[in-house]
Every structure is written in structure tokens, then in C-alpha cells.
Simulated scan of single mutants.
Amino acid sequence: MELPKYHETFIPILEILNTVESLKSRELASRVRDLYYSDLPQELLNQKTSSGANVLLDRILWGKSYLKMAKFVSYPKRGEVQITEKGKQILNKGQLPLHKLQNDQDFINHRKSVKSDKENEIDLDTVNVENASPQDLIDSGFSSIETEVKTELLEKLKDIDPYYFEKVILILLKKMGYGDFIETSKSGDGGIDGIINEDKLGLEKIYTQAKRYNENKVREKDIRNFIGAMSGDTSKGVFITTSTFDNFAVKKAKEAHHSIILIDGAKLVDLMLQYNVGVQVKTVYEVKEIDSDFFEGE
């Protein structure tokens, strides 16, 4: 006997959620364990990861996360999980193999929205376990965890108050090493959300515009208005969005006499992870190797 793989918990998770309006994530994991896997040996049920987490509960929670990426479940409010109509439809079919979820268009779009071009070219999620080296497996696992964090982070950004989103952007730029920032007034700001100092003394200023969009792309008109709102004391601007820029917006920014940097949702969450804004370190793993110098004197 062995513990179920995370993708083998898909249907049990959906079956539990189909009986309730919503559940807290931890309660969901406990119910799935108790109803479907309680007959496993106690030593398996008590098995821990190297960081001390229960292996089975951790796998169930990962199963929930993957179901969320493909929109088979949703998070109606903080910490809670709910089955969607799409989830009910797949539950009626009685099976959801991993390859079907990975080929689901919602899942593909979700993963692409937070992955850089380089990550999309080398997709570590598809690593062949049988032929992979231990380092490949570590990289693959790390990639999956990071993508999940980026996904949730981007969703948080899309849900928060638009004014607070503007403040998050200014906090990020401050963490990146820029000087003090000034939030503009929320009325009549002419499309400028904040002003940051490029240097600590404030000799050079950069204007910022933050658009918290869900699906809508930033258009050429938005870039044109941003450029028009920039006063004569600066020629530099940063336009940030939780979505993407259409081709005309990108073209307008490139052709502008001003220096306009565009940051889309994928790049934004990359920077937030890099500078620890809105995230925290959960676990630190140490990978050790032989110290050859130690044995030089033998």
C-alpha cells in the first residue's frame, strides 16, 4: 500500500465539495483523508515531509490547487474552497486523469499567465520522473511551487482595492532600491498614480501608472494618456498592470519620446517574489555535498 499521488485526489476532493456549499482548505483535506484513505497503515498516514508537514494532507492540498488552476473549484472567500459548475460536470464523468487536467485550456491559460517566456520554453512541470536526475526533480518541484505562489499572488492583486494596488506598486519599487515615493491624490491626478525618486536624493523622478485589470488588456489609448499626463520635470514612466498589453500599447510605448517601461502581470509577480513583497519564506531546504577539502589531509 502507498499514499495516493496528488492527482489521484482530484475526484475525492470534488466529491466532498459537491456535498457542501464550501469548506476551509484544511477541513477539506481532513475530510478527504478520513473518508477515502483512513484504511491506510498508520505509519503512512503519519508520514511527514522534510519540513514537518503531513505528506497526505499536503498532497490533497496540492490536488486542490491544481483543480483551482483549471477552474474545477474556486475560492469564494479567503481560505475557503467551492466546487464550480465545471467541477460538477467533470465529477459526473467520474474521472479526471492528470493529463486531461494539464491539457485543459483554463489550466494552460492560468499557468501561462504567470510564467515568463523562458519558463514556458523549458517547462519543468513535464519532467520525466524515470529519466530525471535528483537535481531535475528538485528544479521541477521548485518550479511547481513557485508557479502556484505566483498564480495565487496574481489573483490576490486582481481582487484587492485599486487604490491599495497602486500602493503595492510603490512599495515594490521602493524595495527595488528607488527612493521615496509620493502617492498622488485620487481625484484629478491626470493618470499618474505615484511619483518615485530614481535616486535617494530625488534628483530624478519617475511617474507610475497602475492598472488592476482582470481580463482587459491595456490599450494604446491608456499609454497615450499616461504620456500626456507626465509633466515637463520627467521623461521616465513605469506602467504596471495585472493583465497584459496589446500590441498597439507596446508599439506606442516603444515609439514614445519618453522612456516608458511596461510591466505585465507575469513580470509583476516575478518582481514581487524576487523582492519579497506580499510573500514570505515558508521553508528553507539545505542540499549538502561532500567537502573534498576536509579529506585532503587523510
Rank of each mutant, 00 (worst) to 15 (best):
L14A: 04
D39S: 09
S187M: 05
R78H: 07
Q105P: 10
N276L: 08
K236V: 12
Y213N: 05
V129W: 07
I195T: 08
H7L: 08
V73L: 09
V238G: 01
D246F: 11
D34W: 04
K48T: 13
D136E: 15
F72E: 03
I16Y: 03
M1G: 15
L153E: 02
D123L: 13
K86T: 04
P162A: 12
Y37H: 14
V284S: 14
K5R: 14
K77S: 13
D199L: 09
M1L: 11
Q274C: 01
D58F: 14
G52M: 05
E183S: 11
S235Q: 13
I182M: 13
E286N: 14
V287E: 14
Y164K: 13
K282Q: 05
A53F: 09
Y275A: 01
E215V: 07
T208F: 04
A256V: 08
V129L: 13
A53V: 02
E166A: 00
Y178V: 02
K217M: 05
Y213M: 00
D125Q: 13
A229K: 06
L35R: 13
R219T: 10
T241F: 06
E130T: 08
M230G: 00
V277K: 07
I122C: 03
V281T: 12
Y66A: 12
R224D: 11
Y275L: 00
F72I: 10
G79D: 13
E152P: 04
I260S: 07
A70F: 09
F142K: 15
A256G: 02
D193S: 03
E289W: 09
I263Y: 13
Y66E: 15
R219M: 01
A210M: 10
L40Y: 04
D104S: 09
K167P: 00
I227S: 03
I240F: 10
F10I: 06
F239K: 06
L40I: 10
K24C: 04
N131K: 12
L154E: 06
Y275S: 01
D161H: 14
A249C: 05
I240G: 00
G237W: 08
R78W: 05
V55F: 03
N216L: 14
E298K: 10
S30C: 00
S187H: 14
M176A: 07
A132L: 07
D180R: 08
